[in-house]
């Protein structure tokens, strides 16, 4: 369905897709930016009391997952399907572990409720929106993993893999901003 005025090569299609994806991420970044501003606006230079160890653990899990994602994508680009499946699986597991850490543990042990004060509101909103993205990323990766298992991608044509990887890295980068915003900046108030 691309224009036939320009060559309909896969390469052209790919570049178009890439632009679309990056624009989508730009748009999404505005939403995360808005959350960040909300945090600055409502918390100022204070922050709530959170479990630092847990924060460090989930953060490192997400960072490590990005590393495996990168490994997996490289493997795909070299035609190493096994390597890809393995790397992706590790990424997925780490992603789920991150979710378990944030939703399953941090949410339960946070010293404030959702509806108590601005700490609760902002904390649950920021982690919630981010977790929602992680969740969609995991689902995306599962789909890609399943399709790769059935040999749907080749060295030349694996746009879905690339998209899933870029999306995953994006979600990761967002956390790199959110983690200090929630856990590090400001005095415990």
């Amino acid at each position: 369905m691309t224009s036939n005025t320009v060559s309909e090569s896969y390469a052209h299609r790919l570049a178009t897709n890439r632009l679309g994806l990056w624009l989508f991420l730009l748009s999404d970044a505005f939403m995360f930016g808005g959350l960040f501003i909300t945090r600055v606006y409502l918390w100022g230079d204070t922050r709530p009391e959170l479990n630092q160890t847990l924060g460090l653990i989930v953060t490192s899990m997400l960072l490590i997952s990005s590393f495996f994602m990168n490994r997996a994508e490289t493997a795909m680009a070299h035609g190493d399907r096994k390597g890809f499946l393995r790397g992706t699986l590790v990424t997925i597991v780490l992603g789920i572990a991150f979710l378990a850490g944030v939703i399953g543990v941090e949410w339960q042990i946070a010293p404030f409720g959702v509806s108590e004060d601005a700490y609760g509101a902002v904390f649950f909103m920021m982690t919630g929106m981010h977790a929602f993205h992680v969740l969609t990323g995991v689902i995306f990766l599962l789909i890609v993993w399943n399709n790769a298992r059935r040999g749907r991608y080749s060295v030349e044509k694996h746009w879905a893999v690339e998209a899933a990887a870029v999306y995953w890295h994006f979600v990761d980068v967002v956390w790199i901003f959110f983690y200090p915003a929630l856990y590090l900046i400001g005095k415990v108030g």
Partner: peptide, 19 residues
């Protein structure tokens, strides 16, 4: 969920919304 973004009694701020 009763989140207090815009409730000054709970540390929220009504102007945040407007921005």
């Amino acid at each position: 969920f009763g989140m207090g973004f815009f409730d000054p009694a709970r540390g929220g701020n009504v102007l945040l919304f407007q921005h």
